[in-house]
Design a protein around this nucleic acid. Structure first.
Lengths: 233, 233
DNA sequence: TGTCGGAGAAGTGTCGACACATTTACCTTG
DNA sequence: CAAGGTAAATGTGTCGACACTTCTCCGACA
């Protein structure tokens, strides 16, 4: 009776569905569930220790995120990635990233810009030390872009890129081991972008960001053409 | 009504969840469920004649589409729209619409371009006859933009705009009765865009589409400022 | 030998029920 | 009469079960 019920504001307490959703999403992105593989609801439910109903709610959300495809009575399959789609994604990223960058140049606070520089310095160190290299390429890159999105003060572009496109790009990187092979060059481009933002030059910021993403996209297109040639299209 | 090429195989019957999802989505967009209103699962389930489990799957998808917000143990509420968000949406639409238009200028077939012209002629007639005026504004506009998206051959931009942004814009239009009050001007702009596409001038097509959307966005921003002034911010 | 078809197995679609959290209504108390 | 607490009612989170569909495998038949 006399329990002290210091009720903390435990925001966590995610529902089971949420937990399953996140774990499944990670499993798909990181390739633990192979592309195109069929998903057996009873089997997965047992693995995660939840009921099928709970699992199915998570599946519904994953389907809406385009991470898996479901057809009535046939079940769910993990999406299959193609380089064509990846190019599509980079085109979207280019247009939206450029826009976000222009907005960020107008709306970021001076403080945020300083923090951006600090972040880039940390990136430089981790490249030099050559140990966090893969980290930089895998997550640090997204960290930088994420802050730009935040700075744009546009909730929609954040949701589209962070909630949709970036996830898919991560998935490609994991599964095709396509880390960008030019960390120093990328860092230099990032610095120039921050310069433009600092000078509040929205047009230049847009241009630089587009060019930055374009570089990656073109390298993918190149790779794609080669792949097509190899398999004798 | 456009021709449906490569239409999917006659889907025998959508699952109950799918039906509920679509009906709910329409109800939210068209304002049958007021903004911010709380959703009672047992009540809704009874109305649609399905079990709560079925309903909850639909709710999960709606949540992922940002049409409603759910918090653990507190239930689901229809999203609340703000003009700030609408501006965000139009910014995204501007960047993506421009990009799609540039791509369409490169990739649309001559046939598709002719069909675009036919569509615009139909729009003109329905404006002149003054009977389908609201139809043109409400759906015809989206029809035009939808075909551009199709023509871009970019599956992602189609999904983002058609599956996310356009829905929200429709919702605003329904609930704030914000049909664009300049059908003739819009039609003229649409024609110029098609001209640019026909000439395969990607850069111009991009510019014209951006400007076209910008016009709408600025009128919204204007309206927003007025509203803010009125309520004495 | 190949293919056609029909049990049987496995899987998906949908439902109703129960445990626990939250809200509401009411009663006690200062 | 206001404030606070308690109990009923409502609502959400999660589960197991059943019907019907699709898949699998094997035997019958040409």
């Amino acid at each position: 009776m006399g329990h002290e019920r210091t009720k903390m504001i435990e925001t966590s307490s995610l529902s089971l569905t949420d937990q399953v959703f996140e774990r499944l999403q990670a499993a798909i992105i990181e390739g633990d569930m192979p592309q195109g593989s069929k998903i057996s609801e009873p089997e997965l439910a047992k693995i995660y220790g939840v009921s099928r109903g709970t699992l199915r709610e998570a599946l519904s959300r994953l389907e809406e995120r385009q991470l898996l495809v479901r057809s009535p009575h046939l079940g769910a399959r993990v999406i299959t990635l193609s380089l064509e789609e990846l190019v599509d994604i980079y085109q979207v990223r280019e247009a939206l990233g450029g826009m976000a960058c222009a907005l960020a140049a107008q709306k970021m606070t001076d403080e945020e810009i300083v923090e951006l520089r600090v972040l880039l310095n940390a990136h430089e160190r981790s490249i030099e030390e050559d140990r966090g290299l893969s980290y930089y390429q895998q997550e640090g890159e997204f960290d930088f872009h994420y802050r730009i999105l935040q700075g744009s003060r546009n909730s929609k572009v954040l949701r589209v890129l962070e909630g949709g496109m970036y996830q898919l790009i991560r998935m490609y990187r994991y599964q095709f081991s396509m880390a960008s092979p030019r960390p120093y060059q990328a860092l230099k481009e990032h610095r120039r972008i921050v310069d433009a933002i600092e000078e509040r030059d929205a047009e230049l910021a847009d241009l630089l960001m587009r060019r930055h993403i374009q570089t990656a996209r073109k390298s993918i297109e190149e790779r794609h053409k080669k792949a097509m040639a190899h398999r004798g299209n």
